[in-house]
Structure formats: C-alpha cells, structure tokens
C-alpha cells in the first residue's frame, strides 16, 4: 500500500476511534478511572491529556516491539508481558523527564501518570492494534484517535457530574450508579455518529 492511501486510512481510523468506535463507550476500556476520577473537570482534564500522550506513544513503541522483536522470534504469546513492561517503563521515564524539564507540567500531570500504568485503555489499545494488524502509520492515527476519544468522554462526564453534584439522587444510585447510567446515555449519543463514516 502506498503512503498516501495509508495516511488516508490512518485519518479514517483516527476519526472513527474518536467518535463511532470510542474506546471507552464502545469497548469499555479505561472504565475504572472514568468512574473514579470524573468528579471534577480539572482533574479529568489532566488525566485525559496524560492518557492521550501515553497512549499514542506506547502504541507506537509496542508496534515496533511487536513487529521487530516478537514476530521474528515467534514469541507472540509473550506480548502481554512485554507490552506491560514497555508501558510501565515509559510512564516511569516520562515522569522523571517531566519532573526534570518542566516543573509546571509535572505539577499538572505528575499525579496522574502512575495511575495510567493500570489503565486498561492503554494496554487495550495496543492489543487491538495487534489483532487488527495495523501498519505503523495507521497505528499512529489509532493511538491519537483513541486517546482523544477517551479524553472527550471523561471531560463530558466530568462536566455532567459537576452539574449533578447538587441534585437529589436516590442513595443507592449515587456515585457509580448514576455515572454508569449517564455513560449509557452518552454511548447512545455516540452511536449517532455512525453515519459520519458511511461506506467504511
């Protein structure tokens, strides 16, 4: 496949990962922080940005590791461990680098980075990338798109939950219960985007 067509495909994959196939609302990845850390827009924003960054970078690193290390050696089943190690190492290094070079950014994102290692969206995106056999360029689109999709979803949820803070919600439904119902409604709304990418 030539590069032009690949870039086009990457673009389509990116848009569909943001809207129609949102990693959170269609694949349920990264639900724990979505429910736990979506009470305030400010924290949701920091966490969302960190996810976009780490997800895009690790998907690319994992693609390289899978294609050039695991496949030649025939060790595909080993990918779970390798991916996890790459993600953990990457997060660790980023944390150190940010702390050293940009105290401002560290203050904003620092607390969220360790949380990200256990975010299933990160590992999930890499596993999907392997299953769907994406090329490197398409993988970049996929990583950016899924990260942005997650960011969008958690920001929307945080906005809604801030509004709900003063509403009278039945006791059993408070917290996770209402969050899940809202997530369901949001997922319904996102299904409406399906028509955007018709013919794919």
């Amino acid at each position: 496949m030539n590069v032009g067509a690949e870039i086009q495909q990457a673009f389509v994959v990116c848009i569909s990962a943001v809207f129609t196939q949102n990693i959170l609302l269609a694949y349920f990845l990264g639900l724990c922080p979505f429910i736990g850390v979506s009470r305030e827009i400010k924290t949701a924003f920091g966490l969302g940005l960190a996810v976009i960054f780490v997800l895009t970078a690790t998907v690319m690193l994992n693609w390289l590791a899978y294609r050039y290390v695991l496949e030649p050696l025939g060790l595909e089943f080993f990918r779970f461990i390798l991916f996890i190690i790459i993600i953990a190492a990457f997060v660790q290094f980023t944390e150190m680098a940010i702390e050293r070079f940009s105290p401002f950014l560290y203050q904003k994102l620092g607390v969220f980075l360790p949380l990200i290692t256990v975010n299933c969206a990160i590992l999930g995106a890499s596993l999907f990338m392997v299953i769907r056999n994406y090329s490197f360029i398409v993988t970049i689109g996929w990583g950016l798109g899924s990260g942005t999709g997650w960011f969008l979803a958690i920001m929307a949820m945080a906005g809604i939950r801030q509004r709900l803070a003063h509403e009278r919600i039945p006791r059993g439904l408070q917290g996770p219960g209402i969050t899940l119902i809202i997530a369901g409604l949001m997922a319904l709304a996102f299904i409406g985007f399906t028509g955007v990418l018709q013919g794919r």
Partner: peptide, 25 residues
C-alpha cells in the same frame, strides 16, 4: 437490539448496582 450494543451494558450495570446498593443501604 440496544441491549446487545454497548449502551445496554452501561444501563444494565447501572441498574444492577442501584438495586444492590439500595438493599445494602
């Protein structure tokens, strides 16, 4: 059909959590 699509999962889990939490409350 909505039940086998993603929103169905969110709604069902939300409802189940609601019921069990109400009992515990």
């Amino acid at each position: 059909i909505i039940m086998v699509m993603p929103p169905g999962a969110f709604f069902m889990l939300g409802i189940v959590v609601w019921i069990f939490r109400s009992i515990q409350v």
